[in-house]
Amino acid sequence: MKQHPIELILMRQLAGYLAVPVFLVDAEGTLLFYNEPAEALLGRRFDEAGEMPLEHWATAFHPTDERGRPLSPAELPLVVALRERRPMQRAFWIEGLDGVRRRLEVVALPLLGQGDRFLGGVAAFWESAP
């Protein structure tokens, strides 16, 4: 069984203690974990949702911009952070897996480790008024 890099282990552990919603993916974009505060906004417990590839999570929440235009995966902050290895922030709407639409402010960061290792990315987000 392959062990995740220590930076992802530490980030998951930290996220488990934070009140801020956090969404963690590996270098391929596979969703590894989101914490309990994120569960409230995404509409499903992580234990039930489980790990999922980028192609799945990037569309599963039906993201749209402020005018209701669907966002492609390439327009999502976490995907930009992964592909361009830079931080990104943006507000957009999602439909949680509980069917509720919510407006989120998302800050996404690439995770770069010692020895020039690209490890994945993390997004922190809040529900916000338009």
């Binding site: 069984m1 062990q3 552990q13």
Partner: peptide, 21 residues
């Protein structure tokens, strides 16, 4: 133990597992 909410937990989420397995 610091890196796991329920140590000993899942191997893939345990620091050092890959070194020691």
């Amino acid at each position: 133990a610091l890196c796991s909410r329920h140590f000993p937990d899942l191997p893939e989420w345990t620091s050092g597992y890959g070194v020691a397995a």
